[in-house]
Simulated assay, not measured.
Amino acid sequence: FKVVKRPEAVVHISGPVRRPGTYQYRPGMRIRDLLSVAEGLLPDAQVFWKRAEIYRTGADKREQLITFNLKAVLDGEEDANIQLKPGDRVVIYREEEVRAPLTVTASGALQRPGTYKLTAGMTVKDLLMAAGGLREDAYSKRAELWRRTDGYLRQIITLNLDEILRDGKHDVPLQPFDELRVYRPDEISVPPSVVVRGCVQMPGTYEYAVGMHLSDLLAAAGGILPNAYRKRADLIRYDEGEERVLYSVDIERVLAHDPSHDLELQPRDELIVYSDEEVRTPHIVQIQGAVQRPGSYPRPMNMRVSDLLFQAGGLLPNAYTERAFLIRQHPNGVSKLVVINLDRAQAGDP
């Protein structure tokens, strides 16, 4: 049998440090250790000492916000030097970023749309309450949270306000300058956007900007992870006939802004970045999209699409079953896009 190397656990740091970015996590790693790996703070930066933040994804996939006093960490106070966990994102601010009150905005079909002060632990539900709640004409099944990233693009997080208001399980902690957009039914439309999935720091949907390239999308997503496969990624694009077309690019050449690989994006483009394990291990398959448990799974002999769907917990109720796409990678590096009817696949059609 073949022993597969476990994917590296990572942590991320941004703000006025000498080397912001993503680093390998080490057991027992604390804030001061990460600052040391990032070569410390910039000497001329006016750092805001009283508050820095850790964004942590819990076991329930919800993001948690943890604050700490940066000066206390550097002064050696062990209680302030919080132990990190894999996937943590540490954010350090400059004085000018927090001199004015940190705010969040709520717009659209609300009783009191406007800009509100961001308080500790504030969530989307709290912002909805501060804005007086939804108007009668609000469409509550789909709202959007527009979030700043390290680059100039913004991440678009789709929300179901019914679920958030009902039990809070799907509530989302807010970050500085988040913008919640609540629409009326007649205003519902999907804004131009692009998607990045796989081995990046912050996979998800991002706003599309005219003239943006693959390198811009990777920057908005926080960059690739250390275990990303750099020799190829796949860009899926809709052509004029609404058929999906696959383009393969070299990630290293994308990051070097090689125009033959750092392609200009179009709305609805989807970039898939693979890990070393996914590309170099032929016994792993991956499933994404409208299934109960998207992710990577071992591939036994004679495995079929129906078997993979079963391992992933089955389709979600809103899954489109008439057409799905299988990206098959061959040993010579060539990928083939195969169209599958999921109804027939689940019925055992080979």
Score class of each variant (00 low, 15 high):
Gln266Glu: 15
Ala347Trp: 12
Pro294Phe: 03
Pro294Val: 05
Pro331Tyr: 03
Ala228Glu: 02
Ile327Leu: 15
Ala324Asn: 06
Glu270Val: 07
Gly289Asn: 08
Pro300Ala: 08
Asn302Val: 04
Gly241Ala: 11
Asp239Gln: 10
Gly313Asp: 06
Pro298Tyr: 05
Leu309Phe: 07
Val305Ser: 01
Glu242Gln: 14
Arg237Asn: 10
Val339Leu: 05
Phe310Gly: 04
Asp276Asn: 12
His283Arg: 14
Leu342Arg: 07
Val279Ser: 00
Ile287Trp: 09
Leu337Gln: 10
Gln266Asp: 09
Ile284Arg: 02
His283Asp: 14
Val279Lys: 01
Arg299Ser: 10
Val338Arg: 11
Asn318His: 13
Gln346His: 07
Arg244Trp: 08
Gly241His: 11
Asp250Leu: 03
Asp239Met: 11
Gln266Thr: 12
Asp262Met: 05
Ile224Leu: 00
Ala228Val: 01
Ile327Thr: 09
Tyr238Ala: 13
Gly333Val: 10
Tyr274Ala: 01
Asn318Ser: 13
Gly295Tyr: 10
Leu235Gln: 03
Lys231Gln: 14
Asp343Glu: 15
Val339Tyr: 09
Ile251Leu: 12
Val339Thr: 15
His330Glu: 12
Lys336Asn: 13
Gln311Thr: 02
Leu315His: 03
Leu316Cys: 08
Gln288Trp: 11
Val338Glu: 13
Leu316Thr: 15
Ile327Phe: 13
Leu246Lys: 06
Leu316Ala: 15
Ser275Gln: 01
Gly241Trp: 05
Arg232Asn: 11
Val279Thr: 08
Glu277Arg: 11
Leu271Val: 05
Leu271Gln: 01
Gly223Gln: 01
Tyr274Phe: 14
Ile340Pro: 01
Gln288Asp: 14
Ser306Gly: 00
Arg230Pro: 00
Pro294Leu: 06
Gly223His: 02
Asp343Lys: 13
Leu235His: 03
Glu242Gly: 08
Leu271Pro: 02
Val254Cys: 02
Val249Ser: 00
Tyr297Cys: 08
Gln311His: 12
Leu263Glu: 07
Glu252Lys: 09
Ser335Gly: 07
Tyr238Glu: 14
Arg244Met: 14
Gly295Phe: 09
Met301Trp: 12
